[in-house]
Design a protein around this nucleic acid. Structure first.
Lengths: 107, 107
DNA sequence: TATACTGTTCGTATATTTGCGAACAATATA
DNA sequence: TATATTGTTCGCAAATATACGAACAGTATA
């Protein structure tokens, strides 16, 4: 089989999508997107999982570049990474508008 | 801990996102979205993985509702599920537009 | 300095994902 | 009827993901 690689765009979409691929992480993003920023505890409070697991999910979202956090001792403040959030918005919009026959999209 | 469940919307996003969470599946969707429909073999031809694995990825996309396939003996024709494609487009657009301070999005 | 508070990291168990070759099923063709 | 073509399914191995409690680290407070 010849070498058929995936494009950078495809890898980037997959990376963002993977981060969005768990309800807890979607809930975290919903929560963060609805406000300027908030503390870890506030996020933990609205989720049905332990703090260890919340911390893990936050780490993944951070690795994907969708959020960022900074220490504000003794708490940690989290917020959406606006630049990448916008990038993600565009990249997903592009993907879903690449449909040949759907007259309803891209309007 | 009280019961804090995820919303249906959050589960749906996670479901779609999970399906998009692998470059091969993104490539398949790119390929399918660019045309009316095509056969399994055409998809396999542009991917760097074996047919067994391609078949598996197609199954996942089908389970997520993003594509559909029908037998056209001895081949199998696949295409985007336009209704759910549009739903996905909307649901992702909504997610990414729920940002409080980003002036660039939702324009 | 001791204690409380806030999160992260570690270790572990379990489940899911990814990928492959081989076997299989169904139809088409020689 | 035998053989080729087209995909799917099976069985397996390796890698990742998910979740938890316990331990830990850092700062604030008594």
């Amino acid at each position: 089989m010849t070498q058929k690689n995936y494009t950078e765009q495809q890898r980037q979409i997959a990376l963002f999508a993977k981060a969005l691929g768990h309800p807890a992480r979607v809930a975290i993003l919903n929560f963060l997107a609805a406000q300027e920023s908030c503390f870890f505890g506030d996020i933990h409070e609205v989720l049905p999982i332990t703090k260890a697991t919340v911390s893990q999910h936050l780490k993944e979202l951070k690795n994907a570049g969708l959020i960022q956090g900074e220490i504000e001792a003794p708490k940690v403040r989290y917020c959406i990474n606006r630049a990448n959030w916008e990038l993600a918005r565009k990249i997903f919009a592009t993907l879903f508008c690449e449909c040949k026959t759907n007259t309803k999209c891209c309007e």
